Each structure stands twice: as C-alpha cells, then as structure tokens.
Simulated assay, not measured.
Amino acid sequence: MRNMFRKVNELRIGKITAIKTAVGNNRGEGYIDTAVKILIAVVLGALLLAGLYMLFGDVVMPTLNERIQEMFNYAG
C-alpha cells in the first residue's frame, strides 16, 4: 500500500513539474505575433499595389498612349 502511494505521489510530482515547465517556457514565437506580422504585410502590400495601380492608371498609361499615337501619326 505504501509503495502504491509513493508511486502515485512520484507520478503527480512528475506531471506538476512537466506542467510548470511547459507554462514557464517562453521560447519561440507566439501565434498572435505571427498573425499581426502577416496582417501588417498584407495591408502594406495592398496599399503599395493600390498606389501603383493609381500611378499607372492616371499618369503612366495616358502619357504612354499619347506618345505611341504621336509615333505612328503619319499625317504629320
């Protein structure tokens, strides 16, 4: 009987130690940190893409179309 109580106590102490080690472990990167980094990257990428789209749509493409039409204008 005494041997059984000793084994149960050792098992309990082992589990408590494992839980304390797991909870106290601060290695690695958390899921929240990774999610925030991904969200920031997506938002910055979308802003950059929208800015480039506006630049090409309003500034570059009309100027390019005008120059191409001037190059192939055979009337003079």
Rank of each mutant, 00 (worst) to 15 (best):
N26V: 15
I40F: 03
Y74N: 11
P62D: 09
L11M: 03
E10R: 09
N65A: 06
K15T: 15
N9L: 06
D58G: 01
R2Y: 11
N25F: 09
T34G: 00
E66N: 11
A41F: 09
I32R: 14
T21L: 11
I13V: 12
N3V: 06
A35V: 10
Q69Y: 03
V60S: 09
G45W: 10
I68N: 03
I13A: 11
Y31A: 09
K20C: 02
K15L: 15
L39S: 04
V59T: 04
T17V: 06
R6H: 06
G51W: 00
R67H: 10
T63A: 06
T34M: 02
M4G: 06
G30L: 09
V59Q: 00
N65F: 07
G28M: 06
Y31P: 00
G24A: 00
V8C: 05
E10G: 09
I32K: 14
G57S: 14
V23C: 07
K37S: 05
E66I: 02
G14Q: 10
V8S: 10
Y31V: 07
N26F: 13
N73Y: 12
D33L: 03
L44N: 10
L39A: 07
T63S: 03
A22H: 13
G14P: 01
I68R: 00
I32L: 14
L55V: 14
T34L: 04
L64H: 14
K7P: 01
L47F: 13
T21S: 12
V42N: 13
L47T: 14
I19C: 14
T34K: 04
L39I: 02
V43L: 08
T63K: 06
N73H: 10
Y53I: 11
I38R: 11
